[in-house]
Nucleic acid binder design. Structure first.
Lengths: 135, 135
DNA sequence: CTGTATCCTTAGGGATACTG
DNA sequence: CAGTATCCCTAAGGATACAG
């Protein structure tokens, strides 16, 4: 409803991303959708970091408002709601992979499979090919 | 002094990065250091987003504590302090570039040069080569 | 110029009860 | 199951004065 596009602190692309993703919870929801196969409110609640229902609710609403996720209701199963990444949300994949690689390199406690780093270069090549195609 | 390493909410690499970078200001300081050539307290203060002195002070301390930036004092010039990225901080470059690319793609108001996206694929290739070398 | 200190306000977040 | 609604507390943040 209210759509003043100039609520931002600046036009910097880093700041733009921060306005949407710059908090302690949003990226964890993206992670759950992107890598953990989670799609429902209840599944998000069960993640290790223990988000509370009101915060989760607010983050999901904001993500939907920003067009990163979509919402759908299954009519067959009783009132089951499914969340999914939009293409805009899926476009966060390279960011998520880079973050994972950075953390794996600099945090010994991080439980990232060794195989990830090996496969990462290959993944990057795929991403480049993908981006080159749509350009 | 206090170094309990288990203050984290989880061992997830995404969460690890969030613990350090997951707020509205930290990445902007990284940006200023990485892309804007800023090195001093006063220069950070002048950025568009208008961080206040106490917050900037706290973020710089946290970044130094986490080993992302270093601090040095010039003895010739009177009490001028210079901040710089450590190698751990510089390793954030791929993340910063991906964030910039994502924002440029999804935010029309973002003032990212068109040339950036063209050069981005080339940059990615350089990064891959770099990472392959150290593996 | 580089911060600290202080005051005050707001936003974020935990816990939990409750509703369609 | 998927949220809303409350209560309450703490952290984050803005403004600004001031100190080394």
């Amino acid at each position: 409803m209210k759509k003043e596009s100039t609520n931002w602190r600046s036009n910097c692309p880093i700041n733009f991303a921060l306005e949407t993703l710059g908090d302690k919870w949003t990226l964890l929801i993206i992670r759950d959708l992107m890598f953990k196969g989670k799609t429902s409110f209840g599944e998000f609640l069960q993640s290790q970091e223990k988000i509370s229902t009101n915060i989760l609710s607010a983050r999901l609403a904001k993500l939907e408002e920003h067009g990163l996720i979509g919402k759908s209701v299954a009519i067959d199963k009783r009132s089951k709601v499914f969340y999914s990444l939009t293409s805009k949300g899926k476009d966060l994949l390279p960011i998520m992979l880079e973050i994972t690689a950075w953390s794996a390199k600099h945090d010994s406690a991080t439980n990232t499979p060794k195989s990830f780093l090996k496969q990462f270069a290959a993944s990057k090549k795929d991403m480049i090919a993908m981006m080159s195609n749509e350009q």
